[in-house]
Write a protein that binds this DNA or RNA. Sequence first.
RNA 1: GCGCCCAUAGCUCAGCUGGACAGAGCAACGGACUACGAAUCCGUGUGUCGGAGGUUCGAAUCCUUCUGGGCGCGCCA
Length: 554
Amino acid sequence: MRLKQLIRELLSAAAEAARGAGELAFEVLPAFEVETPKIAAHGDFASNLALVLASQARRAPRQIAEILLRWLAPPEDLLAKVEVAGPGFINFFIREAYWFRVLTEIHRLGPAYGNSDLGAGRKVQVEFVSANPTGPLHIGHGRGAALGDALANLLAATGHQVEREYYINDVGTQMLTLGKSLYFRAKELKGEAVEFPADGYQGDYVKDLARQYLAEGGTLPEEPDESDWQALGRYAGEQILAGIARDLQDFGVTFDHWFSETSLYQEGWVERALNRLQEDGLLYEREGALWFAASRFGDDKDRVIRRSSGATTYFASDIAYHLQKMERSYDLLVDLWGADHHGYVPRLQAAAQALGFGHRLRIILVQLVSLLRHGEPVAMTTRGGTFVTLREVMDEVGKDAARFIFLSRRADAQLDFDLEVAKQQNPENPVYYVQYAHARLASVFRQPGAEGLESQAPDAALFALLSLPEEVELAKKLAAYPEVVEGAASNLEPHRLTYYLTELASQLHSYYYKHRFISADASLTRARLALVKGVKTVLAHGLGLLGVTAPESM
RNA sequence: GCGCCCAUAGCUCAGCUGGACAGAGCAACGGACUACGAAUCCGUGUGUCGGAGGUUCGAAUCCUUCUGGGCGCGCCA
């Protein structure tokens, strides 16, 4: 059992016992905290139970704390000390030897240490990237990809049944524009003097596609109509999407489903969604268009769902898409969107509420990435075609560095991504710091004197030899790991894990430098290698969740 | 004009969903390789948590307001 949970139960039991003895009066036990204090002098765990009990029990918090302490019945070997402090906090000091039990657990669970059943098998879908197939992925998409993938990993590790999905916007004028762009580039290639449309996609990738199209024997109608544009757009879209899939795969991201917007229409989901809303009286006509009463669900205003031209809006597709997702019976839908879509959140949440699943939709906004080189902004214009692609970033700085940096900030904080810093192998670049800790330990286990000890079960009798402050702190850090994973998962915040790993690596490096693991003392060697093996296991697990490799050497 | 996000050390950022005197990395300066990998370690300083009110036993964290940045506000996608 987790220590925090154990402490919590000991406190509850103490409170109940005190009440049974008539020493404390309360109706129901109020919610209380058991937390790890920032300051070592406050113990390993601290609880505010006496403080939150004060009003009901009509006594001073410190008095209540004293009573609770009298009724506390901890296991013999658990506590070194417990005391009342400050306004009435109860501070618990765990016996040093107790912490090393975590090593036995890590050995028993191996690469599964850090996993939990927090999610209890709940079905969660994470939809991310979902870039329009009109051009290659850029660095901003990379952040979304790293974040979504790490989130999905975290949710899977905490006992959720996770599916990754990519939504393809393959309907609408953009595909038409793409087809048009391809057509004119192909014409140019054939030496014809044509004027490239002003709203066309100007990136070089369109020229490449045009070249490929012609090489494959593609034809160009002399007087193209809309259906010709569409066909060319479909061709280009498929090629681009295949490229996106390759980029993502090389970035370490794969999807369970690639969901096509077109299929929503083909399978009647848009009509179904509109009918549902219609039945509930949430649609109305005005000026020839069909409106959804989004303002009844917290949005600023009502939103058009079908234009007077008869064409449905993007919003209609999205409602239908989310309805379709919910009918696949997910307990939770997580959408990752670029922050430039944030104005769109209220209307989709409104639609989700209207359809009865508002509480099961979480939308995470991923803030923009500013690309820098030597601290200077790199110009990126979308239409002009001079943007830095995810592929280029991967080629230049590597997958691991890129992913780690993307995951080193909260999603809602803007991120400066400096290409020069990212590819430097110095302390300013924490990827290598963490990876180096892992590689260093791998190297230790290759040393003479460590043969066979990496996989050996730790001998609990030897834990008494581990008494250095660095050793106790490392054991505590390892014991905290499962909660870090759970916290990162349930709050949908992978960056917590990134920070934890950096801290763990730091403790390891410091320990490594001060003390030799392998020595003439065979017992001490075994004890220390057991500890360090635990660190290695956790580093590998954590890096795995982030999608970063844990190298045996570097 | 309205709405959303952000504001913490010189710089880049954490702060566990209100807790006890605010943390880390970088940068600066000074040290450490005849011992398991120096992509490492050790030491030294830094704060009106943007300002002002409020809620609370207790606020960087919640509410109001102001200031300063970013983004969004189409019968576009």
